[in-house]
Design a protein around this nucleic acid. Structure first.
Lengths: 219, 219
DNA sequence: GTCTATAGTTCGATAGAC
DNA sequence: GTCTATCGAACTATAGAC
């Protein structure tokens, strides 16, 4: 938008969102301060309030930008696959998980900087956080749940939903490189190698989903 | 300890830990205030500092008490199973996941109040949080990883570690009842029914672990 | 052990000049 | 749009009486 004015070096509005993403991801919503974000962006603190009114407003703008970018990639890949016909569970899971890495900002920092933020918001009990998650992710989630049901006959809506949530939870919790996998595996797994992690996650998730489709839980 | 003095109505030390658990779980470490915890416990704010010195000290004491209680149950169940010989993957996963519900404080609030706190701490980048997770969970995790390797020939250390982390991540992210599963499933799944969720999680996780044992990722 | 009172800091947000 | 300056409210932690 506004393509008539060439951005010489990042608009201050975008610079602030970049800084907000870094600081919020590192310290959480309550732990981050408007002062720290302003410093990171190299602007005055008052400018944050001018553009985004409140701290909550800034957080939502930052969250919407990043989640929107990730979900656009997810759905584009899903659409391509569905247009081609026959789709494997592995392909669907990969289309769901990989964009979180690829579109996670600042890939030099592990790509999953944003993943911890999603987890924090989506397990929060606050009303505005729940609303933010619903607005940002539910439409995308429903399309993937439908795709899983189509790919796996026998998977009912309840199991498809639990399966979707398990897959996202399993992968998202591993995207922040904490060194824990390295320690527990005595060096045989490296949690900053997100590609290796994702390959395992796809294998794990696809098998889990097939088992949910085979099992009779509701009877 | 100190069994000579009968506690008429909960020692203030324990009352404070109870209050801290409720407030920290609801608002996170930074979002919680010592004032709010003191009010919840019904004591003066200064008493918190007398017993636990700092906010961080209080958090660690609260976290150690609850994680210790959960891990004791987990390991006791694992020991019973291993003493009996032949152990299924499903049994191991169940022994790992169910105590989080059963020993999660205040079961009327969903049992998983503590789960959100574990997630927040374990995805944090802070040094003291990483140390706390390592001290609180690594010894238990190593025993379960070993048990998984023993139950599944072909599961190497790297895959056993990833599998363990996936299982915990999948289940832990679903223990806070946010109403999201209900919405996405159009009412066919209910996320305050932790037993139903756990049954699915065990099916999902066991199949995922078997797939990791069968796959050749490292080649 | 438990309290009141407060010191010292940091926070979100706004007013107003340019 | 962007800044400096500041208000008023919250916070952690401590001092000191009982």
């Amino acid at each position: 938008m506004t393509p008539s004015r060439p951005p010489a070096r990042g608009s201050s509005r975008e610079d602030i969102l970049d800084a907000a993403e870094a600081i919020f991801a590192a310290r959480g919503f309550e732990g981050a301060s408007m002062r720290a974000i302003a410093d990171e962006a190299g602007v005055a603190q008052a400018l944050l309030h001018y553009h985004y009114k409140t701290k909550e407003g800034l957080f939502e703008a930052m969250f919407a930008r990043r989640s929107g970018a990730i979900n656009r990639i997810r759905l584009a890949r899903l659409d391509v696959m569905l247009a081609r016909g026959k789709t494997s569970v592995e392909d669907i899971v990969e289309a769901l998980l990989r964009p979180t890495i690829e579109a996670g900002h600042d890939p030099s920092l592990g790509g999953g900087r944003f993943a911890g933020l999603i987890l924090a918001v989506s397990t929060s009990e606050g009303d505005w956080q729940k609303g933010l998650v619903a607005r940002s992710y539910d439409p995308m989630a429903e399309r993937f749940i439908s795709a899983l049901k189509a790919a796996l006959p026998g998977l009912d809506r309840a199991n498809a939903t639990w399966g979707y949530l398990f897959v996202v939870g399993a992968a998202l919790t591993q995207m922040t490189p904490t060194g824990r996998a390295d320690r527990l595996s005595e060096g045989e797994a490296r949690d900053d190698d997100t590609d290796a992690m994702l390959a395992r996650a796809v294998t794990f998730a696809a098998a889990g989903l097939r088992a949910l489709a085979a099992e009779e839980h509701g009877h």
